[in-house]
Design a binder for these strands. Structure first.
Lengths: 113, 113
DNA sequence: TAGTATACTTAGAATTTCTAGGTATGTCAA
DNA sequence: TTGACATACCTAGAAATTCTAAGTATACTA
């Protein structure tokens, strides 16, 4: 019964980020760390394999770009198929969230015994 | 990248259910199935081992009771320690939920391309 | 008395994420 | 120029969680 303080729903988060702009992996991690206020963090060992999977599924496309300094980055672009997938995963998340809350909201903590 | 249509956060749900009344395993599953509108379901193979774990951690206590028909049921009762655990897990869930939403809400689906 | 619903249990597989390394490049200070 | 550090990506194996697919046993009902 150990505690897992991880980010789940990795693909939902990645697809969401990519829906507004193309990003590279390291940038996504930085972005999520900010949003999550350091309470959770997306690990590199989690993200990169998931990105590979999204690419295989045709949800994202990859291209390389050099910074002015010469460093190479792999940018990910959301495809139309990926956008439809985002919609589906978002709806699944909403249903899940509502259901969890319908149970949790009824809970009674007592007087913080 | 297969889809897992499972209930996560099992212990949060169980502790929440038990915060208002003692329940037995099969009853919890029926209760959750209702709340989740059949979109997700808690499997027996998931629940019973988790209940065992909650018992080992001292979050719940078990007692047996016979129905008028003679069938034996194992009821689970939330301990004070379990109630504190529920509070912690609820706060973790809220933080997680907020963070996910802060990312998902900014997403753009496009014209449903 | 056969079938179905209730009620609990468990082993092994599947899935997801993490740990803990690795490689490589650019920047900055000593 | 050398060392430290941040950036950027990658991967194998372990850990955690949930599911699948059994099994046992009892009660109801047709």
């Amino acid at each position: 019964m150990a505690k897992k303080q991880s980010i789940e729903h990795t693909s939902l988060l990645v697809l969401s980020l990519l829906s507004t702009e193309d990003m590279y992996g390291y940038q996504m991690i930085a972005e999520l760390t900010k949003k999550f206020d350091n309470t959770f963090s997306m690990k590199e060992g989690t993200l990169y394999p998931v990105l590979k999977g999204l690419e295989n599924d045709g949800f994202v496309e990859v291209y390389e770009e050099k910074t002015e300094s010469g460093r190479t980055r792999k940018y990910y672009h959301l495809t139309n198929k990926g956008r439809r997938q985002l919609k589906t995963e978002t709806e699944t998340w909403r249903a899940y969230e509502r259901a969890i809350n319908s149970v949790v909201e009824r809970a009674v903590y007592g007087a913080g015994v």
